[in-house]
């Protein structure tokens, strides 16, 4: 699906947030200059094309009790990446799972983010993951402070 200029404007409105009024899509449609019906039809199309995953809420995790977050970085042999990625991403404690480029000064090539209620819980999750995947080369980097957390503003950067 190729995005039209209208689609891009709709995406910009959807990412700026839904107003808390009875007919939120009607309010957004008015800003774009189309009807609520047309707006909703485009939103469905954009979602069906997989461009928008869903409309949903983003929460402040530390406000709902998930206070510790750890990035676990792993050294996984290239030939085992897919297998390990599939195993680890199956666990609900793992919120993000990526293979990334490694560098001489940073030999880690695989990343999992885990959220827990304490550092000890994060540590336990890491041990569980290591055991499941049968790998030992890893370290945990805990977040000490959140300096920025925002949602991307596509087409506005």
């Amino acid at each position: 699906m190729t995005l039209s200029e209208l689609d891009k404007r709709i995406i910009m409105e959807l990412q700026s947030g839904l107003p808390l009024v009875s007919r939120p899509f009607e309010a957004l449609a008015r800003r774009v200059g189309i009807t609520e019906e047309e707006f909703l039809a485009r939103v469905h199309a954009i979602q069906q094309a997989g461009i928008m995953r869903r409309i949903g809420a983003a929460l402040r995790h530390h406000r709902v009790g998930f206070t510790a977050n750890a990035m676990i970085v792993w050294q996984i042999p290239e030939e085992r990446i897919v297998e390990v990625g599939e195993q680890m991403s199956r666990l609900p404690e793992v919120t993000h799972c990526y293979q990334r480029v490694s560098l001489p000064q940073w030999p880690y090539n695989f990343y999992t983010m885990v959220h827990g209620r304490s550092r000890e819980e994060c540590q336990r999750i890491a041990e569980k993951l290591a055991q499941i995947a049968g790998v030992n080369n890893y370290r945990l980097l805990y977040s000490v402070a959140e300096l920025k957390k925002s949602s991307m503003k596509y087409f506005m950067d």
Partner: peptide
């Protein structure tokens, strides 16, 4: 609507909006 507004004010709810696939964009 009142509850969502309060949760926004309390900063529990950061945003309610579209969640996009950055790769597809």
């Amino acid at each position: 609507l009142q509850r969502l507004e309060r949760l926004m004010q309390q900063d529990v709810l950061r945003r309610l909006g579209g969640i996009f696939d950055s790769r597809k964009l």
